[in-house]
Amino acid sequence: MHDSPTIYVFGLSVDLSNVLMIVVASVIVFVLAVIGTRKLSVENPGKLQNFMEWIVEFVSNLIASTMDMKKGKAFIMLGITLIMYIFVANMLGLPFAITTIHEEPFELFGTEIISQEYLNELEAKKGYAEAHILWWKSPTASLGPTMALALLVITLSHYLGITRNTKHYFKHYFQPSPLFFPIHVIEQASKLLTIGMRLFGNIFAGEMLIAVILMASYWGIVPLMAWQGFSVFIGAIQAFVFTILTMVYIGQSITHEENHG
């Protein structure tokens, strides 16, 4: 349906729309946070400050529900960044998308993005040569950024487990018996996959459905509104789920539970 503006740098594929949207989402989060904490006051906080403090409290409670708050304090900043970034990223693709239409071969930074053969192929399939490049979307609707976040937090949880909880961390792979070692390894691998894929799948599916509903032209207005509203909900839930799972994994690896499965 849509093509992505992918170029290759040293053999690595770089989806420029993802890069663009990662930057946009990060900038929005940063600007929001800076505006929200501009006029800080101890005794008379403004509305924006109250909102930012509410986010801090929310994330603190979330961490407190998964681990000892003494250890959890260090992860408040991680939780806040995760939840704000993922929420904003999820929202970006909802109100609109920006695509460019190309009827000629299109090149970017020396890489051919829309080739003549591709256009010919499209013409053969649809009867006209017209390629769409999608520029504006949720960065979390691609596997690259979501797996990046997933790998980041899973790596962090393992790192913390190894450095702060060494004995228990290595022992737990062989409990209740050494036979369980493969299962533990699979569990760890599945953690990484599920946390990243879940986010990607939810947001990607949401945007796909928006694109599908748009094909229905006028008939699609009411379902589109309903689905966009629901997607806001999904986006918020997924941001929350990602953050709490991160904290649960970190909590699991830094606490000394005796009956850990």
Binding site: S4, T6, V9, L12, S13, V14, D15, N18, V19, I22, V23, S26, V29, F30, A33, V34, G36, T37, L40, Q49, M52, E53, V56, M77, L78, I80, T81, M84, Y85, P139, S142, L143, G144, P145, M147, A148, L149, L151, L152
Partner: peptide, 29 residues
């Protein structure tokens, strides 16, 4: 397929965002 370019850029951007938020927004808060 996983787009490894945006994968690495996302990791860098996230860490950068975390540090910036800590320094300019949430640290003072």
């Amino acid at each position: 397929h996983i787009d490894f370019g945006s994968f690495f850029i996302q990791i860098a951007a996230f860490i950068l965002l975390l540090l910036l938020l800590k320094k300019y927004a949430f640290g003072p808060l």
